[in-house]
Amino acid sequence: MKPEHAAQIATVIEAAKARDIKNVYFVACGGSMASLSFGEYFISKETEVPSFVYTANEFIHRNPKGVGENTLVILRSHSGTTPETVAAASFAREKGALTVSISMEAESPLCQAAEHIVHYNYKDGSDAIDGEVGIFYTLIFEVLNVLAPNEKYKRVVAQLPKVGELIEKNIEQFADAANEFGKKNKREKIIYTMASGAYIHHAYSFTSCLLMEMLWIHSNAIHSGEFFHGPFEITDYDVPFLVVKGDGASRPLDERALDFVQKFSDKVEVVDIETLNYGGIDEDLKEYFGPALTGSVLRLYADALAEHTGHPLSVRRYMWKMDY
């Protein structure tokens, strides 16, 4: 991590220590909201501090009563220009919350609206995806160590520099499987994704931002624990599923749902998080690194669909083309 990023995070942590943080809100839209959700997952799992995820516009309109001077609000927009998130930063700051904006643009409207910023140099390629992941995860685990100090969080931060190399190794490991998935599913009009725990956020991002937004393929992110409470009725031999079989506490939920769809569908793709390459990561820390590595793996599956369908991920009908 570059000194400037370490200094930004250190400033945030000192501010958090001075506030006696009672609750944490993660606020963003789309893929940025999904990426922040991992912070909510670990804070709610590991600490007694209430933690919430909001899409930016609802955060403003709902106006949660718990937001105040002992609240930490972390916001994110890749460009730093998402209007709803910029407005949410100003809204939270007006309510006295400690606000932190994450963006690739240090001078963006979002960063200007928040009290503190943590930015990554994605635009010039000097941080790219591994640096972006490392910076965000460092922030989250430093915050965790403020809320509920534990030596393992320091070990996570110390081992985060390995993320870039591990991302590359996992991309290589899953490349062939992703390519086969793209080849087999290139004519599918709908692909369901399923996951639970920390990985439901990956399923949401894969569904909404990659399949629907970028590839125009109908989809829905189904929580494995909710699969048998309605959605399983759509299962049939010709219905495609991509199942993220997670690690950790919720893995049995994924296994139960996967057992069912494999009985009745001939089109089931499994991304098993336990098979990821975790080389150099302490055994008791793997559950923290799985979510950091999975996004790049799932992106391979979208890239393969784009390649075999001839539909570039950059194509849009409405985004960037009109006001809405």
Rank of each mutant, 00 (worst) to 15 (best):
E40H: 14
H116P: 02
S103N: 01
V49G: 01
L144N: 00
N145D: 15
K189R: 13
A114Q: 02
Y278L: 00
L300F: 06
A302I: 08
Y318I: 11
N170F: 03
K162P: 04
Y199F: 15
E172G: 11
H308A: 10
N63V: 04
I167F: 10
F52K: 08
G164S: 10
A88F: 06
T11L: 12
P149D: 08
M212D: 11
F136P: 02
S101F: 05
I13C: 08
A306W: 12
K286I: 12
P64N: 11
M319S: 07
Y278V: 03
Q159W: 03
Q159F: 09
A257G: 10
N70E: 14
F91C: 08
T81M: 10
E269I: 02
S108F: 09
M33T: 08
I281N: 06
L36D: 06
K267E: 11
S35H: 15
V86L: 12
I9Y: 02
N150S: 14
E307H: 14
E283L: 02
F241P: 08
Y204V: 05
A128I: 00
R299T: 12
F260L: 06
L285T: 07
T294N: 05
A302N: 04
R76G: 12
V271P: 05
F91N: 09
D176Y: 10
F141N: 05
H229W: 07
R62A: 11
T99K: 07
E48W: 06
F181I: 08
S314T: 15
N145S: 05
N277Y: 03
H61P: 01
T294H: 01
T138F: 00
I117V: 13
D176N: 09
Q173S: 11
S90M: 02
H223G: 01
A249C: 03
V86G: 06
V12G: 08
W216D: 13
Y301G: 01
H223Y: 06
